[in-house]
């Protein structure tokens, strides 16, 4: 299995404003994302919530790291595998409640599990239509530009989603107007069962930027510091009004498209290869090697996260589904829908 861009975690990474404390916090967030995700896979299998579950295990670095240290006013347009953005910016309880579709979920249980969003976190609850939120992010960035505000929008999409016409329209317009947006393409090699080679006639999806006149870069998305070193300057550049950047992050989803997908279309060796390139232990090794994290601390962090997850699950499970009248609200601001022939 060949990866076009391959580079081990840098020994002496430039700091880009990350203090030792922040590096540790980033570790905590990455681990929290992983542990939450693994727990919810189990809960889904145990039938504890309805619908389905889209795991993002293996892709923590590509969502957690770019979302870290943004301003509250910065906007995130996610797709369906951006748990990590929410882990950074939303309370765990809120995410759990959303998966359980309970009354205490921000969407009141109306939308779809794993389509996470939270207004206080400035993350729009996504539509499933892939690439849709990349278009919205461009609109948000346009507003920031018109109002001369120093804020940035992050637009997440999978490599599969970059085949959508609307995504090109968004990228093109952002480049023409130098909008403050960073496009993050998580290339996990597969869009459901369709391999990346049937989606783009190249290995590096950053080439998508070439034709629209935007800088594009491909990086190892499982290298935590590399992701930070690439996104932080791109965000800063956007914030300075110098325009958008497209960053392809090469990564891998360990499990099926959703929990009901056995993902048997992928070669075993490929899965094994990528599991060995797990972003979290590599980063952990870096931190420990630099005496920024001890085994004892790691244990404490894990315990703390476990407890947080327990509380989040309890919060979700303790709540009921919303009352059925909620189905009729939120269609319009000024009136409710009728409910003829109901209940």
């Amino acid at each position: 299995m060949k990866v076009a861009y391959e580079k081990p975690p840098s020994e002496t990474p430039s700091e880009f404003g990350l203090s030792p404390k922040e590096k540790k916090e980033l570790y905590y967030l990455l681990l929290k994302c992983r542990m939450f995700d693994e727990r919810f896979r189990k809960l889904f299998r145990a039938g504890r919530f309805a619908g389905t579950y889209f795991s993002a295990v293996g892709q923590e670095a590509t969502t957690v790291v770019p979302s870290y240290k943004l301003l509250p006013q910065d906007f995130i347009g996610p797709a369906h595998r951006e748990l990590g953005c929410n882990i950074v910016r939303s309370p765990l309880k809120v995410i759990a409640a959303q998966i359980y579709a309970r009354a205490n979920s921000p969407d009141k249980g109306l939308s779809h599990p794993c389509h996470y969003g939270y207004k206080p976190a400035n993350i729009i609850t996504p539509a499933s239509t892939v690439a849709g939120q990349s278009v919205l992010a461009v609109g948000v960035a346009l507003a920031y530009k018109i109002r001369k505000e120093p804020y940035v929008a992050l637009a997440f999409v999978g490599e599969g989603g970059t085949a959508m016409g609307p995504w090109y329209e968004a990228v093109n317009f952002a480049a023409v107007h130098k909008l403050p947006v960073v496009f993050i393409v998580q290339n996990n090699l597969w869009g459901e069962s369709v391999p990346a080679r049937l989606v783009g006639a190249f290995e590096d999806f950053s080439h998508r930027a070439d034709g629209v006149g935007m800088p594009g870069v491909s990086i190892d998305g499982n290298d935590v510091l590399k992701v930070w070193e690439t996104t932080a300057p791109a965000v800063a550049r956007a914030r300075r009004g110098e325009g958008p950047t497209l960053i392809e992050m090469k990564t891998y989803r360990w499990y099926g498209h959703s929990e009901i997908d056995p993902a048997d279309y992928r070669p075993k060796e490929e899965v094994e290869y990528w599991k060995k390139r797990d972003p979290i232990p590599a980063y952990e090794k870096y931190l420990m090697g630099n005496k920024k994290l001890t085994l004892e601390e790691k244990k404490q962090i894990e315990e703390k996260i476990d407890k947080e997850i327990d509380e989040a699950v309890e919060f979700a499970e303790a709540a009921d589904y919303g009352p059925v009248e909620w189905v009729l609200g939120d269609v319009y601001a000024d009136f409710k829908a009728d409910a003829p022939d109901r209940p």
Binding site: V324, V327, L328
Partner: peptide
């Protein structure tokens, strides 16, 4: 069906719809 975006997710909502 109801005149709302179809179909709201939570199981009781879907039944109501």
């Amino acid at each position: 069906g109801l005149d709302v975006p179809p179909i709201p997710f939570a199981p009781p909502y879907e039944k109501f719809y």
